[in-house]
């Protein structure tokens, strides 16, 4: 809603010129000119806290409160009967351990890799999910219309939180970080199972005619990098894409009102674009779950490929 609301404030230039920038502004990280906390450069790297870093902290706190603390409390109890939230958690953990990790990694090393895969799943799920909630837009509207804080007040905390999107997993750097963990895990898993040199030998099938190796070795080496790259792109692009679609459809209201020079056209368009945006939001709920599932599934498939080598 905020994209359309902000566009209606537009003065001077046409709405069409601003829609694209506005959408990008709502899905990308806050720019370095608007960090939440100014920090000095260290080794030439600006370590100021941007909105996505802040959201990473929020997700970390949420995961701790919703997963780690209940599990710790549950383990300290004498009677180990799960109830309520703990029951749901146990179902998810059991599903991931028994249906994702074990078939791929094998019964021998499932307890070694299940914690990492579960961490991936909960982190990605919470990060994806929190991006669907327009928390800061709500806070911003309350700030603007109830407390009458002008948008130009850059020292206001809520105003400074309005720059950038809130989905951390829509940031390629975050997903690349997760994919690097998978990449290193693949090497560690292969090394642990077969030894360092055999792991690299296992990348290609044994006992083929030598001309095939000339083609296969480069393809496998490229493939080694393609897998984490695909993980990075898939998650980030899927999380960005849905948000862009929702914002673009909501922007139709402002565009139509501008094109026909009447507020009525925008209001009329609302009857089409708001239900469509709601429908895409419903689809996004499935995408959030599917992408968290796919990332964990593929990570365990790749780790399993390094452990159980059969070509």
């Amino acid at each position: 809603m905020s994209a359309a609301a902000e566009q209606s404030h537009a003065t001077g230039t046409s709405v069409l010129d601003q829609v694209g920038d506005n959408i990008i502004h709502h899905v990308s990280n806050s720019s370095l000119e608007h960090p939440l906390i100014h920090l000095p450069h260290i080794f030439g790297i600006d370590i100021s806290v941007t909105k996505h870093v802040f959201m990473l902290w929020v997700v970390a706190i949420l995961v701790s409160c919703a997963v780690i603390i209940p599990v710790r409390k549950y383990l300290q109890k004498d009677k180990a009967i799960p109830s309520g939230w703990m029951n749901a958690l146990e179902a998810v953990v059991k599903f991931i351990r028994d249906s994702i990790v074990q078939p791929n990694v094998g019964a021998k090393s499932v307890d070694l890799w299940a914690p990492m895969i579960l961490t991936f799943f909960f982190f990605i799920l919470f990060a994806n999910g929190i991006g669907l909630l327009p928390i800061f837009e709500m806070l911003g509207s309350i700030n603007r219309f109830i407390f009458h804080v002008p948008a130009s007040d850059t020292h206001n905390v809520v105003n400074s939180l309005l720059h950038g999107g809130s989905t951390v997993t829509a940031n390629f750097n975050v997903t690349a970080g997760l994919a690097v963990i998978t990449f290193i895990s693949i090497i560690i898993a292969g090394t642990k199972a077969h030894g360092f040199i055999s792991h690299w030998k296992n990348l290609v099938p044994h006992g083929l005619a030598w001309p095939i190796y000339i083609i296969l070795i480069p393809i496998e080496i490229i493939g080694m990098f393609v897998r984490p790259f695909a993980l990075t792109m898939r998650l980030a692009a899927n999380m960005t894409g849905g948000h862009i679609a929702i914002l673009a459809i909501l922007s139709f209201m402002a565009i139509f009102a501008d094109m026909f020079h009447s507020v009525l056209a925008g209001v009329g368009m609302a009857f089409i674009s708001v239900p469509m945006a709601v429908a895409i939001n419903g689809l996004e709920i499935i995408v959030v779950l599917v992408q968290a599932y796919v990332f964990t599934l593929l990570s365990s498939v790749f780790i399993g490929m390094a452990i159980n080598v059969h070509h």
């Binding site: 599903f95 490229i222 493939g223 990098f225 393609v226 897998r227 790259f229 695909a230 993980l231 792109m233 898939r234 692009a237 899927n238 499935i286 779950l289 599917v290 992408q291 599932y293 796919v294 599934l297 593929l298």
Partner: peptide
């Protein structure tokens, strides 16, 4: 049923970027 949908859609969701990942990188 939701779990079934998610499980069934995972091959399609995982295939897309695997195919273009190599083309993009190289």
């Amino acid at each position: 049923y939701l779990q079934k949908i998610i499980k069934d859609s995972s091959p399609a969701a995982s295939a897309s970027y695997t195919l273009i990942g190599g083309v993009l990188i190289m």
